[in-house]
């Protein structure tokens, strides 16, 4: 043991002693008489109470509300128990299925593109070239911004007459920048939100991949070099399998985050044109806090929760299998 760590231990013991001495004798006697399990419960009880109050109770209450026609803006109305009617209405509502499709489109493409670009950037940054730290900082900047600010900011970039995005696209394609509107066109709007989310969150995927790449011991590559494995083979048999758990973790985080995407899209398109970019979270918010159909919105939230929880559970199992390999 080094001198410093022994000093630390001595100091911490002194601190514990001081606390013990400060405990009133009656309390100390009582605690001494308690089994370890009871003391453990005393320590975790506040946390459990908070979890119950903040997480579990609202969840149970939401499940209960989902079987009623309760509307929070009608305090004088009698609340009726309507069984599974809310669930039935949601699952047979074609508009809600359209928002599910919009969400699926957004999820699939953002994750696919972010993984591709994020991994490529991480791979390049990992090469340790001159100024790599500077570029890492620059690349990471967008994810430090508030999504609402990013959404608002990009509405200007997408402005057909003065927006930088349209000007750049016009410059490279020869098209008139004012001839297309990224957020006003039904075909382009879904891509407009994919582009912004990708711009903002690819650095996050990159950072996770970078952590994965830097965790691979150099000796494995050296051994592969001795065996005369080509760079291509090294990439597919060493880099990809060892980074895969990190990549899957990034996909999990981005999937959960984008499933509940709200602020950025609301600022950018407001869910339009029409319902083209109305994601489930936006639709749910409208049901809960604009239409004030609390019971209906509770059922909607439960369906989304079960979907995300179910998919995430399956995914985590797959992730654990990959890690075990």
């Amino acid at each position: 043991m080094t001198r410093k760590s022994s000093e630390d231990r001595f100091m911490s013991e002194t601190a514990i002693d001081r606390v013990a001495q400060a405990t009133p004798p009656r309390v100390a006697r009582r605690i001494r008489g308690l089994p370890d399990r009871a003391i453990a419960w005393i320590f975790i009880a506040p946390t459990i109470f908070l979890l119950l109050a903040v997480n579990i109770f609202p969840l149970v209450w939401t499940i209960r509300l989902s079987f009623t026609d309760y509307r929070v803006n009608r305090p004088n109305n009698e609340v009726e128990w309507i069984g599974l009617r809310n669930y039935e209405r949601i699952l047979t509502d074609s508009d809600i299925w359209k928002t599910m499709q919009a969400t699926a489109h957004f999820l699939f493409w953002t994750i696919a593109i972010q993984v591709l670009i994020g991994f490529t950037l991480a791979w390049l940054i990992n090469k340790k070239f001159r100024g790599s730290n500077f570029w890492t900082t620059v690349i990471v900047l967008p994810m430090m911004l508030s999504p609402a600010v990013v959404g608002n900011f990009w509405t200007f970039l997408y402005q057909p007459q003065i927006g930088l995005f349209n000007t750049v696209v016009g410059f490279f394609t020869g098209a008139d920048p004012a001839s297309f509107s990224m957020i006003g066109d039904v075909n382009l709007a879904p891509w407009s939100i994919v582009i912004v989310d990708t711009w903002m969150w690819t650095p996050f995927v990159m950072l996770i991949c970078l952590a994965g790449l830097r965790s691979i011991p150099e000796s494995i590559y050296e051994a592969a070099e001795c065996d005369r494995a080509s760079k291509w083979r090294q990439f597919w048999t060493i880099t990809v399998p060892l980074v895969l758990p990190f990549l899957m973790l990034a996909v999990l985080f981005r999937g959960i985050e984008n499933f509940k995407m709200f602020d950025l899209v609301v600022q950018l398109t407001g869910g339009g044109p029409g319902n083209t970019t109305t994601l489930t979270s936006i639709d749910l918010k409208r049901e809960a806090f604009e239409r004030w159909r609390t019971g209906f919105a509770s059922a909607y939230a439960i369906i989304l929760f079960v979907t995300v929880f179910g998919l995430a559970s399956i995914y985590v199992k797959a992730l654990n299998k990959v890690k075990e390999r």
């Binding site: 007459q161 927006g163 001839s179 509107s181 006003g184 066109d185 398109t269 407001g270 044109p273």
Partner: peptide, 12 residues
């Protein structure tokens, strides 16, 4: 009116 005579990008 929206199609013909409004500024580009005025969809929201």
């Amino acid at each position: 009116l929206y199609e013909c005579c409004t500024p580009p990008g005025s969809s929201d």
